[in-house]
Amino acid sequence: MDKKQRRLIMRTSILVLLGAALVFSLYANFTKDKVAAVQKGDTARDFVLTDMDGNRHKLSDYKGQGVFLNFWGTWCKPCEYEMPFMDNQYQKYKDQGVQILAVNVGESDYSVKKFAEKHQLTFPIMIDNNNQVQTAYKVDPLPVTFLIDKDGRIVDTLTGSLSEESIQKHMERIKP
């Protein structure tokens, strides 16, 4: 190999290495907030919570069905706004293979029960008492909804309150 060729290879490899370092840094920097968050296409992390009626819900048991996973709090106005719509759509879609799981972010049984009674909610509501599920899903702020398809993959992450129409559209997206 002649000197000139060796020099070219040397220079090219150093520049490629430095370029790769730059690309990596930029990529890592711009995804660092998203790495923290749960991303579309990820497999949804499994969890187990017990609802207000004492039934255990394990996410992976819903394989084959779509899951509309909603995180909420009783004091949160946008959460309250979408609850009745969610309930209407739950009634329509529960027989078509879409499940709604509404995870409260760790309030008292009392507050959650009163809230569910007030809005006459029929879908399963569970309280994430020690914040483990919220931490796993990096929930902040409320409300946030994860659309999980029949293969347990996260199709989309929705923040802010949803209208009845958009909830229906999202139910269609995860219908098996």
Partner: peptide, 22 residues
């Protein structure tokens, strides 16, 4: 300090340090 152009400048400075030294 995490803007793209700031990071690019830092990376270019690193490149300049390395290449100019070599």
């Amino acid at each position: 300090y995490s803007s793209w152009w700031y990071l690019i400048c830092i990376a270019m400075l690193g490149t300049s340090l390395l290449i100019a030294s070599i």
